[in-house]
Amino acid sequence: MMCIMKIKKFIWIFILLILWQITALSGKVSPLIFPSLGMILKAMVHAIIQGELLSQTLFSIAIIIEGLFIGAILAFVLAIVSRMSESLNSLVETLITLAHPLPGIALLPIIILWLGTGRASIVFIIVHSVLWPLLLNLITGFRATPKVYSDVGRNIGLNRLVLLKEIHIPASLPYLISGFKIAWARAWRALISAEMVFGAVGGKGGLGWYIFKQRVFMDTAGMFAALVVIMLIGILVEEVLFERVEVLTIRRWGMTEK
């Protein structure tokens, strides 16, 4: 079943690529708007050989991992805090209500004043965009833990902290994983847009900066090359990394609806 789905996806991608190429080669659109696949590939190879695209991709990924890590820790801490008492729970929920709808980019001018224009600011924006969806999913996951699990945990003598670690967290793993999926996607978006506003930091920039530079120097093929890289990374993480994690955990344990 899964396999057929994947093959279908590939067929569609292939068709879309062909349509792209037909449009590019039709001569009706300027290559500055619609570069051909060959031009994009050339731009990509060029950018990779120059070493720029690869190092900027790594730079982006490193920042995202850093932001995800900090965001995840904060989300766990806040989720635990919210379980400690009714009033702390309402405090955390208020925080979520206030902060979750705020796009990171809207915070940019303030962040620049607070933290300057360095790496810290970009990490801050990523943490902001990752923290709230993760926290929300964690709290929902904790709430959705069947009561019988925690009864069993209490019965065999687990204290509250161990109960959290050994029962609540594994029980909310499906929520946690989907939280991380959302967080990952949001982190990418936040990073790319932050970099397109900020530019490079200390001469080092990520993919967003790369796209921005290609834009101001009108290298459309180069821009698309970076977009392709972003898509490839997305596919790799979604279809390979998260897929593996799910197969090894919640699917193995029968914790998915499917």
Binding site: P109, I112, L113, L115, G116, T117, G118, V197, F198, G199, A200, V201, G202, G203, F212
Partner: peptide, 23 residues
């Protein structure tokens, strides 16, 4: 000096300079 550059529209650049951030 390319390594020192930071991209900002004029008003933000002025704010950043006056607020004595890292700019």
């Amino acid at each position: 000096l390319d390594n020192l550059l930071i991209t900002m529209a004029h008003p933000e650049g002025m704010n950043a300079l006056m607020a004595e951030t890292d700019v």
